[in-house]
Simulated assay, not measured.
Amino acid sequence: MSSPRESAGPHGLLRIIVLATLLASGCGESEQATTAMIPGERQPFSGNWSPNGTQQVLDLGTGRRAGVFRLSGSLMLTGKQRLARGFGTEVIGFSDTASGLLARSVWTDEHGDRVFSELRGEGIGPGRRIEGSIIGGTGRYAGIRGEYRFEWQRLTPIEGDELAGRVVGLQGWAQVDRSEAVSPVKTGGGK
């Protein structure tokens, strides 16, 4: 019995080599080879965020509590027009049962480019609604503005200063100002 190489002949072998080369060169490319914000265009996004960290709480009597917290975690965005697939996140903030929550957040993508936002809401308790305003960024996110919202769900009872939760219903939009847009960065194995 003849081998595939022998039966393919010289032209068939050339086709196999070309096809194998094309397949191999495409394997290094990511699903989304460029992540570019289109200047002036709103890009909706949704996603999942699972932060955890620490908090320090003061009991102010009569059921009132105030605390500072620091969280970090992973934010995975979904949707065709998402900013990027995923970000590492850091949040630092203050929460008071009487006046609500005020925090700042930094999202860092796989290239080190960052998105900055301000958070405000009812507090960090279960089912609390929190809103974010995207106020700027670096690299491909220079000039970015936007808004997002979500609800906080505690994953475990608070023990000591630990705080663990997840975000549900994360939805928002982002837009880059035309004058501050940066050209897209090529990702993956291609040149």
Rank of each mutant, 00 (worst) to 15 (best):
P4A: 13
P4D: 13
R5D: 00
R5G: 01
A8M: 10
P10W: 12
P10N: 02
P10I: 05
L19N: 05
T21R: 15
S25L: 12
S25E: 06
G28S: 08
E31H: 15
E31Q: 14
Q32E: 07
T34Q: 09
T34D: 12
I38V: 06
G40P: 02
R42V: 12
P44C: 07
F45D: 10
F45R: 00
S46E: 07
G47R: 01
N48F: 00
T54K: 10
D59M: 02
G61D: 06
R65P: 00
A66F: 07
S74M: 10
S74Q: 15
L75S: 06
M76F: 05
G79E: 06
K80H: 14
R82N: 06
R85K: 07
G86Q: 09
F87W: 06
V91P: 01
V91K: 01
L101G: 10
R104G: 14
R104N: 11
S105T: 12
V106W: 03
W107V: 05
W107D: 11
E110V: 09
E110D: 14
G112V: 04
G112R: 10
D113G: 08
D113T: 04
D113C: 15
E118M: 11
R120W: 00
E122L: 13
P126A: 13
P126K: 14
R129K: 08
S133E: 03
I134Y: 00
I135N: 03
T138M: 03
R140D: 01
R140C: 04
G143S: 03
I144F: 05
R145K: 13
R145E: 15
Y148P: 00
T156D: 04
E159D: 12
D161P: 08
A164V: 05
V167P: 01
V167I: 14
V168C: 12
L170K: 03
Q171W: 11
S183N: 07
P184N: 07
V185S: 15
G188H: 13
